[in-house]
Structures are given as structure tokens and as C-alpha cells.
Amino acid sequence: MKMKRYVDNDKFIAGMTLKDITEPEQHNMALHACENTNAVIENRKSLAVSLGCALEDLICANQTHSSNVQKVTLTDKGRGADRLDTAIPDTDSLYTLEPNLVLCSFTADCVPVIFYNEAKGLVGVIHSGWQGTVQEITRKVFAHLQQTEQCDPMDFHVQIGSALSQERFEVDQDVYDKFKDIGYADEFMYYNESTRKYHIDNQLTVKKQCELAGISSEQIIIDRTCTYDSPSGFSYRQDKQCGRHLSFIMRKQ
């Protein structure tokens, strides 16, 4: 099982699966972007085994580049794990207070955000493509958790997974303007005179959103591996037909 384990201790396990050309569908984990559904399900089963659980312990969402967050419980166990039509609808962030549920997020250049709050026993994932970032999904999720679950932002630990690098994230004026409008992304953008394109660091913009939500920068870790440049990365910008990474977190019983 080719993956990065970002967190693996007696309470939490979190990580991100990687592209592997020796595996079926190059280790693709997404049912919404695959040629062979059964191959993806087998890849997910292998992931579950490596985490010491079963396929039905996974919970997946139908991601729509929204700023929507959904709390899930044991009754949601298995949703989206082996079929698309049971996935949590129209949601780009999942969190739970329950143990032994594997929360999943799918990316191929977008920014995956994985977090836990040990004081509350809470874990979650966020999918933040550029559309989610300009909607401030990460900031909104942590504001929601403070208000709804009475979380102290200083108790959060955040892992930002590998994504498209600033060098590779090349955009036109329209996307630049959307980042400009959020008011704090200027330092994470530059203009390339020769190509007349803007380059944006989506990871650092998301990190800033975590900080604006009250999370200490010392408790935010970024994996700076570029999904475009890495042979272990799925990149939609490089290949529109590519598979997807699965970022996950589970609180152990």
C-alpha cells in the first residue's frame, strides 16, 4: 500500500494514498474518476486493511467544490465506500466525534486538509480546490466547529497534504481577482510577465485560513510535494483523465 502516513499514534491515524503505476488504475481511489469501478474498490479495500479496518468503515462525500461541511456518525458508516449514490451529497468537508470511522477526501492538485482535536476526540477532512479556497471553506469549517462543537482552535492539529505547487498553479486574471478579493492572499501570488499568467500558492492560502480561524501556525504542517511534478502524484492539470489521491483520518478506539 503506497501512502504517506502523516499521523500514526495510539489515538489517530491519518495520511494520503499515492499514485503507483504497478497497481490497478495506478492506485486510483476515486469512483467518480475511474475506468474500472472494481479496481478502485479493491484499492480501497487494501487501504482499509492497512488501517486495520474494513471497507465499510470508510465514509466518502460527493465533492462539489462547495464550502459545505457535514458531521457524520456511525449511522453514516460505509456511505460512498463502494458506490457513488450513497456518498454524502454536495459536501467538501466531513468531521466526526466517533471512533473507527475513516473520513475520506479525494484530490488531484486540490489541497487536502486533515485535522484532529484531541481534547474533543474530533477528526475531519476538507477538500479545498481553488474554488473552495476562495469560498474560504477551511476558515468556515473551523468557525463552525468552534460554534457548534465548542472546539478551542488552539486544540486543532492540521496537516495540509500535497497539492499543485505555486509554480504549476498558473491562472488568468479572473481567478487572480477571486483570490485578491478574499483580502489576505496577496503575499501568496505573483505575476509572470513572460507568460502573462498569475501563480498562486493555494496551500499557503489555506494555511492562512487556518491561522485566521485561530489555529497556531506551529500546529499546521504542510507537505510541499507537488502533485504535478511528483511521479507519485495524480495531477488533473497534467492529465484530465487522472485518478485521485485519498486523504484520510481515523480516531482509534
Score class of each variant (00 low, 15 high):
residue 115 F to V: 07
residue 210 C to W: 05
residue 231 P to E: 09
residue 134 V to E: 10
residue 221 I to S: 15
residue 2 K to F: 13
residue 184 Y to Q: 01
residue 50 S to N: 11
residue 203 Q to C: 06
residue 29 M to Q: 15
residue 153 P to E: 11
residue 151 C to Y: 11
residue 43 N to G: 04
residue 127 H to V: 04
residue 232 S to F: 08
residue 239 D to E: 10
residue 129 G to W: 02
residue 110 C to M: 06
residue 61 A to S: 15
residue 105 S to Y: 03
residue 10 D to R: 09
residue 191 Y to G: 10
residue 238 Q to D: 12
residue 204 L to D: 02
residue 211 E to L: 11
residue 79 R to F: 07
residue 81 A to L: 14
residue 86 T to S: 15
residue 151 C to N: 06
residue 223 D to C: 07
residue 31 L to Q: 05
residue 39 A to W: 03
residue 166 Q to C: 02
residue 90 D to M: 13
residue 192 N to R: 12
residue 27 H to Y: 15
residue 26 Q to K: 12
residue 79 R to V: 08
residue 46 S to N: 12
residue 219 Q to F: 13
residue 53 C to H: 11
residue 46 S to D: 13
residue 230 S to Q: 10
residue 155 D to K: 00
residue 101 L to F: 07
residue 63 Q to W: 08
residue 191 Y to E: 01
residue 9 N to Y: 04
residue 104 C to V: 10
residue 163 A to K: 02
residue 207 K to G: 05
residue 40 V to W: 00
residue 156 F to L: 12
residue 57 D to A: 05
residue 132 G to N: 03
residue 74 L to W: 10
residue 101 L to G: 11
residue 128 S to D: 12
residue 95 Y to D: 08
residue 60 C to Q: 02
residue 186 D to W: 02
residue 248 F to C: 01
residue 123 V to E: 01
residue 129 G to S: 13
residue 173 Q to L: 15
residue 66 S to F: 07
residue 227 T to A: 13
residue 125 V to H: 03
residue 143 A to Q: 12
residue 239 D to F: 03
residue 61 A to Y: 11
residue 74 L to N: 11
residue 162 S to E: 13
residue 84 L to E: 14
residue 44 R to F: 07
residue 203 Q to E: 10
residue 131 Q to T: 10
residue 39 A to E: 09
residue 87 A to S: 13
residue 32 H to P: 01
residue 53 C to D: 08
residue 164 L to F: 09
residue 202 N to T: 15
residue 187 E to P: 00
residue 149 E to Y: 06
residue 56 E to N: 15
residue 51 L to G: 04
residue 122 L to S: 10
residue 225 T to W: 06
residue 230 S to M: 05
residue 21 I to H: 14
residue 32 H to V: 00
residue 84 L to Q: 11
residue 137 I to L: 13
residue 59 I to E: 01
residue 109 D to Q: 02
residue 88 I to C: 07
residue 109 D to M: 04
residue 194 S to C: 00
residue 52 G to E: 08
residue 77 K to S: 13
residue 145 L to H: 00
residue 42 E to V: 00
residue 198 Y to P: 02
residue 241 Q to F: 08
residue 122 L to E: 04
residue 121 G to Y: 07
residue 235 S to F: 11
residue 181 D to H: 11
